[in-house]
């Protein structure tokens, strides 16, 4: 073989670099549809919302192309109609508070009911587990609105619960449960319970029960074994479940609308109100972005507690 023939062959290193370039170009091509969808349907609308939040409301909904920060100011403050002084928007603050507290309460309730349920399912014989998991997923087959109205049927003044309590003479007159925060919390706990059960189940199912035996063997009581061994090991499932419950709760719309009535609004209803009857799209946009910010803060907090290291070595 002559020198010139050798020279025409690319060096092995160059060949690899070429292949790598080809590879990365292919990867870009492959991810193009996904990127397109993200830009068109996720980033695009978000961008529109950011722009709208800095415009003025139109007279019949929509927006006027005048720059204004009123949308953002009105998230927390409101202007007095007579003297134009700014003061706290109490109505909004109470809605934020209701959203946050009800979401937290719902998360805690789904934990209280969901973790034992998940534990029960995960400790069944493999054949039986599928049956119980199937039961957990059955509610997803029915429309959320229908299920919420079914809850209404349970708790309204002439509903099942009141009728039973009256018949048993435990109460003398029907309990007012509809259109209260209780109704919303009850409804959301019911709706989001499967979202807690499933990730916790996945974590418990992976749990090595010999570790629990090892803890008993090393003089741990049942409670300590749970706290020191089981809980840290199923923590990822509990955190995933909490995120899956807490975040949709913050933005819940149907449940508070049906069970809370017009009085007990939550964040989702407030946003809907601004885009609908309120005809204040910039405020609606600013509220939506505020909700996103709250969710992000919550997520970052969760990520931080998950990645926190165990206590220091002895």
């Amino acid at each position: 073989m002559t020198d010139s023939a050798l020279a025409s062959e690319p060096a092995p290193g160059a060949l690899e670099a070429h292949a790598a370039r080809q590879d990365s170009r292919n990867r870009w091509l492959l991810s193009l549809p996904a990127l397109l969808i993200i830009f068109l349907f996720a980033s695009g609308p978000l961008f529109v919302m950011v722009i709208y939040s800095f415009l003025s409301p139109g007279d019949y909904g929509n927006v006027k192309w005048d720059f204004s920060t009123d949308g953002w100011v009105n998230v927390l403050l409101q202007r007095d109609i007579f003297d134009d002084t700014l003061m706290w928007a109490d109505a909004h603050l109470s809605i934020f508070w209701r959203s946050l507290s009800l979401s937290l309460i719902t998360t805690v309730l789904t934990l209280i009911f969901g973790v034992p349920t998940a534990w029960f399912i995960a400790t069944q014989r493999p054949g039986k587990r599928e049956f119980w998991l199937f039961l957990v997923t059955v509610p997803f087959w029915t429309n959320l609105l229908v299920r919420t109205i079914a809850i209404q049927e349970l708790i309204r003044a002439e509903g099942v619960i009141n009728n039973v309590l009256l018949a048993l003479h435990i109460i003398d007159e029907p309990l007012q449960m509809m259109f209260t925060d209780f109704a919303i919390g009850f409804g959301m706990t019911y709706v989001y319970l499967p979202l807690m059960v499933l990730p916790v189940y996945a974590a418990v199912e992976k749990l090595d029960f010999r570790l629990v035996e090892a803890a008993y063997d090393l003089y741990a009581s049942r409670w300590t074994a749970f706290r020191r061994v089981i809980l840290p090991l199923i923590k990822p499932g509990i955190i995933a479940g909490s995120i899956l419950v807490f975040i949709p709760c913050l933005g819940a719309y149907v449940t508070p609308r049906v069970l809370g009535g017009g009085k007990n609004l939550m964040f989702g209803n407030l946003i809907e109100l601004q885009f609908g009857a309120g005809r204040n799209w910039p405020l609606g946009a600013a509220l939506s972005l505020t909700l996103m910010a709250i969710v992000m803060v919550a997520l970052i907090y969760y990520v931080r507690i998950t990645s926190r290291e165990e206590k220091k070595d002895v």
């Binding site: 090595d208 010999r210 570790l211 035996e213 090892a214 803890a215 008993y216 063997d217 090393l218 003089y219 741990a220 009581s221 061994v229 840290p232 090991l233 165990e310 206590k311 070595d313 002895v314």
Partner: peptide
């Protein structure tokens, strides 16, 4: 088991994966 002064070395060791050797 937690009241017996008897300890076990398990077949697959059953070490706590979320703790260091010392812990």
């Amino acid at each position: 088991p937690n009241k017996r002064p008897v300890n076990t070395v398990f077949q697959n060791y059953a070490l706590f994966p979320h703790m260091s050797v010392a812990n």
